[in-house]
């Protein structure tokens, strides 16, 4: 499904602000994989997401989806294959347009846009049925402007829109981080349900360890632009936060001692 081969990315190369964002990233996702990504700020999680979605292109390395090389495919073309939900609830929807217009935009993701009417009667029924799965009552507010919705509602709508046409992949970039605990729990639950139902290959960045453990069948931990830990299958099922933190300390610690040894 998704394949990242030896991805390297450096920001501001050759200046004082030089920062190695990604270093030798190799990652393969099988169809139906749901991978959660954790790591501290600056670990390279968002850069990884941007590399897959096409906002950034790698300095070295290749990106494949379904054995098709998409390393240099522009963002808007890639987004036919990739659904995305952003951290900012304002980012995933068009605020001055109505709910049904937003859904129509999502519906046309992998179609050629023409001069046909954007919202038809038939589509409206489709939209209503889809909105019912969110249990937020949005199906009765099709012609309300999205700017009037709350952050949680908007994020739920973004999630629905991102998965509406069942793309090849779903990228979730800390999509519950800006919500209050109750809304975050709701969106987490919806995410689990939607991914379960559509069997989408999913990559989810999160700062919430518990969420990273609850969702998905694989987990990767990143630090300083590298993948430092990969857990999947049964090991992931049995993983706890303590074990994860312990593992993080151990890897960081051993790296530190080896650094010390080198310097010494």
């Amino acid at each position: 499904m998704l394949q990242l081969n030896q991805i390297h990315k450096v920001f501001n190369e050759g200046t004082l602000d030089e920062k190695i964002a990604l270093e030798d990233i190799n990652l393969t996702l099988k169809p139906g994989d749901f991978v959660t990504v954790i790591g501290s700020n600056g670990a390279g999680k968002s850069t990884l997401m941007n590399m897959i979605s096409g906002v950034l292109t790698p300095d070295v390395g290749e990106v494949f989806i379904d054995d098709r090389k998409i390393t240099n495919l522009p963002e808007y073309k890639r987004s036919r294959l990739i659904g995305r939900v952003f951290q900012d609830p304002m980012a995933g929807t068009a605020p001055s347009m109505t709910i049904q217009e937003n859904l129509a935009l999502a519906y046309n993701r992998n179609r050629r846009r023409t001069l046909m009417k954007g919202v038809t009667k038939k589509l409206r029924t489709t939209f209503q049925e889809a909105l019912e799965t969110l249990y937020l009552g949005l199906e009765d507010r099709l012609s309300a402007k999205v700017g009037l919705l709350s952050g949680g509602e908007r994020q739920a709508l973004s999630l629905l829109m991102a998965t509406f046409t069942e793309p090849k992949m779903l990228l979730l970039d800390e999509h519950t981080a800006a919500l209050d605990p109750a809304r975050a729990a709701l969106i987490t639950k919806l995410t689990g349900e939607i991914v379960e139902r559509t069997q989408l290959t999913t990559l989810m960045v999160t700062h919430n360890m518990q969420q990273a453990l609850d969702l998905g069948n694989r987990l990767i931990m990143m630090d300083s632009g590298r993948i430092i830990l990969e857990v999947d299958g049964e090991d992931k099922q049995n993983l706890t936060i303590e074990a994860l933190l312990h593992e993080f300390q151990r890897i960081k610690g051993s790296k530190m001692t080896s650094d010390r040894a080198l310097l010494g």
Partner: peptide, 14 residues
């Protein structure tokens, strides 16, 4: 209209 409203969003819808 979406281009004027939220460029990032509409790019993510190809």
């Amino acid at each position: 209209r979406a281009t004027g409203d939220n460029k990032r969003m509409i790019r993510s819808f190809s």
